[in-house]
């Protein structure tokens, strides 16, 4: 019975993960091999696809851009959303309650709904077609989720702790920096890994907000090169693997924080 269950679990997981396996396996096969037997594992793996895609497409540039954009966005999200969450945590005025409620609404907002005006707003402040513009938008867009996670976590921190420090004469900013922020570390880990994966995978915002002239992210690059690689599957799969490796590694390293953040943010 126990062996049967284990076998069933392995078979079900294998079927379920088959698409992921296809991407990884076929990135290391030659085109004739891929077309003849796509499901076969790469026996005698080749790196032609991987090296080919790096030389043809602007993949390395895209990877650098995506790293830059993802890194800056999540660093900014961490700072601004923990600050807002702390301000909301410490105050009970109607303004802070209203801000808290409006921010929650941001959780359900579909990106296609606001991208046209976001482009206009960025143009108005002179940040259209630029990395800073995209980073600011992504930060604003994912801040609600981060605020939710931080607020949920802060409930376990007694307000008296901050109040005691302020009686001792510390300013709110220094309390935040030296007392609260270190306590928030587990929540910060969750925010960084979850938002990191989401920002890395974003496709429509960079497509629209960076425009055609800028160097773009690795997702937009993949999309633009699909037609180009229609004849070269090895390179297409390699490209897909390049897009996927960073998030897979990031997730595997921090997977405990990933699940905790997704459940903690929502069960409270």
């Amino acid at each position: 019975m126990r062996q049967l269950r284990a076998l069933l679990a392995i078979v079900v997981s294998a079927i379920f993960l088959f698409p992921l396996y296809l991407v990884i396996a076929n990135a290391f096969k030659t085109d004739p091999e891929i077309l003849r037997s796509p499901a076969k594992p790469p026996i005698g793996p080749t790196l032609d696809g991987m090296s080919g895609v790096l030389s043809v497409g602007d993949v390395s540039g895209g990877l650098v851009n995506s790293l830059l954009i993802t890194g800056s966005t999540i660093a900014l999200i961490m700072v601004v959303s923990s600050m807002l969450a702390f301000a909301l945590h410490m105050s009970n005025s109607w303004i802070s309650n209203a801000v808290g409620a409006v921010i929650l609404f941001g959780l359900i907002l579909p990106t296609p709904v606001i991208l046209i005006p976001v482009f206009r707003v960025l143009k108005y402040i002179g940040l259209e077609n630029s990395f800073p513009g995209l980073i600011l938008f992504l930060c604003a867009y994912y801040a609600p989720f981060a605020v939710l996670v931080y607020r949920g976590f802060m409930r376990s921190i007694p307000r008296e702790l901050a109040e005691a420090a302020s009686i001792d004469g510390a300013s709110l900013a220094s309390i935040y920096w030296s007392v609260i922020l270190p306590l928030l570390r587990p929540a910060t880990a969750s925010v960084l890994v979850i938002c990191g994966v989401w920002v890395w995978n974003e496709f429509l915002p960079p497509l629209v907000l960076l425009g055609p002239l800028q160097g773009n992210t690795v997702t937009v690059g993949l999309f633009r090169s699909v037609g180009q690689f229609d004849v070269n599957y090895g390179q297409l799969f390699s490209y897909m693997l390049f897009v996927s490796i960073p998030v897979l590694v990031f997730y595997l390293l921090l997977q405990r924080h990933f699940v905790r953040g997704l459940t903690a943010g929502a069960t409270k």
Binding site: V80, M83, L84, S91, S96, G106, V113, L136, P144
Partner: peptide, 20 residues
């Protein structure tokens, strides 16, 4: 409350205003 202002402003400019 002042600590929340930059975030609220960013959210207002790039999410709330675009909805309007």
């Amino acid at each position: 409350m002042a600590m929340g202002a930059p975030t609220a402003a960013l959210f207002a400019a790039l999410v709330v205003a675009p909805i309007g």
